[in-house]
Computed example of a mutant assay.
Amino acid sequence: MKDLKAIEYWLSDMDGVLVHEGVPIPGADAFLSKVVSSGRRLLVLTNNSLYTPRDLSARLAAAGLDVRPEWIWTSALATAQFLADQRPHGSAYVIGEAGLTTALHGVDYILSDLNPDYVVLGETRNYSFDQITRAVRLIERGARFICTNPDPVGPSQEGSLPACGAVAAMITRATGVAPYFVGKPNPLMMRSALRRMGGHSESAAMIGDRMDTDVVSGMEAGMETVLVLSGVTRRHEIERFPYRPSRVFDSVADLVEMVE
């Protein structure tokens, strides 16, 4: 294991690491401040494709956390970058919100339902049966199927909501075509984040609260992995997985003194 003081590039999940249901996790502000003041690079990752980095920055500021838009990397941005690399200046039929459509416009993609190169599925507050039907028919006609992330459910104050992965499963069932998922646990998202930072995996660490997304994708991208127990994964659950995080802490508060 590397000395964490040698880490130059810090990647951190958002929900469960920095905030929980809109409330900052104790010590998150101190950790963010320490990373920035020490001259290290920081990028906050989220599978949520609903919001633009500017929107998320404002939401975090309302919770008392100073995270600039340029320090945020979403599955929508990773998806847009992936499509721009695969098929520059292409077209896509999109089911999603501003976070996804803005990211695709940012890489000069045309949003259209007229013979698009891709059907791109992200999160939306209201999945439309008409949109899903249109996506099914376009995929049947040859459009490639991309999904921002595989998360089957998302949180809300009332309880779980069907999310991207669940809707993708319905489209797959109807078409027989499985999507390519860009977001975590695909290590592609980690590698695209590192490229965004200009960093290398050997001097980078990923902090997350989930073994099945954050830790595994960080590990497969060749990074040091830090599991915090302030979110989904509990300590007794770690041994159930065939891989282990590099380090385990109660929360990011325990990392403050290790960033020098």
Rank of each mutant, 00 (worst) to 15 (best):
D3L: 06
D3H: 06
K5G: 12
I7T: 01
I7N: 01
W10G: 01
L11V: 00
D13S: 03
D15S: 08
D15W: 09
H20R: 06
E21A: 01
V23S: 10
V23L: 07
V23E: 13
P26S: 12
G27N: 03
G27Q: 04
D29F: 14
A30G: 06
F31I: 04
L32Q: 10
V36W: 04
S37L: 14
G39H: 06
R40G: 02
R40I: 01
R41H: 13
L45N: 15
L45F: 15
T46A: 04
N48Q: 01
N48S: 02
Y51M: 07
T52N: 13
D55N: 08
L56W: 07
L56Q: 07
S57T: 08
R59A: 07
A62Q: 15
G64K: 07
D66I: 05
R68T: 05
R68P: 07
I72A: 03
I72K: 05
T74Y: 15
A76R: 08
A78R: 11
T79D: 12
T79S: 14
Q81S: 04
F82I: 00
A84L: 13
A84N: 13
Q86T: 10
H89N: 11
G90S: 15
G90L: 15
S91T: 02
S91A: 01
Y93P: 01
I95D: 09
G96P: 09
E97W: 13
L100V: 07
L100P: 06
L100A: 12
L100H: 12
T101V: 08
T102W: 14
A103I: 00
G106V: 09
G106E: 11
Y109L: 08
I110E: 10
D113E: 10
D113A: 05
P116I: 05
Y118V: 00
V119L: 06
V120T: 09
L121M: 15
E123L: 13
R125N: 12
Y127P: 03
Y127F: 15
F129K: 01
R134V: 00
R134M: 02
L138Y: 00
R141S: 03
G142D: 13
A143M: 12
F145P: 06
P150V: 01
D151R: 00
D151Q: 06
D151C: 05
P152M: 07
G154M: 11
P155D: 04
P155E: 04
P155I: 02
E158Q: 09
P162K: 08
A163E: 08
A163M: 06
C164D: 12
C164R: 03
G165E: 02
G165P: 01
V167P: 04
V167L: 15
R173H: 15
G176T: 02
V177W: 03
V182T: 01
G183A: 12
K184T: 03
P185E: 06
N186S: 14
L188F: 09
R191S: 15
L194Y: 00
R196Y: 11
S201G: 10
E202M: 09
D209M: 03
M211T: 00
S217G: 10
S217C: 14
S217E: 10
G218H: 08
G218S: 05
A221Y: 14
T225D: 02
L229E: 06
V232Q: 12
R234F: 13
R235I: 00
R235D: 06
H236Q: 12
E237V: 03
R240W: 12
Y243G: 00
Y243S: 02
R244S: 10
P245G: 11
P245H: 14
R247W: 09
D250R: 13
S251E: 03
V252M: 11
A253W: 05
D254K: 14
D254G: 06
E260I: 14
E260D: 15
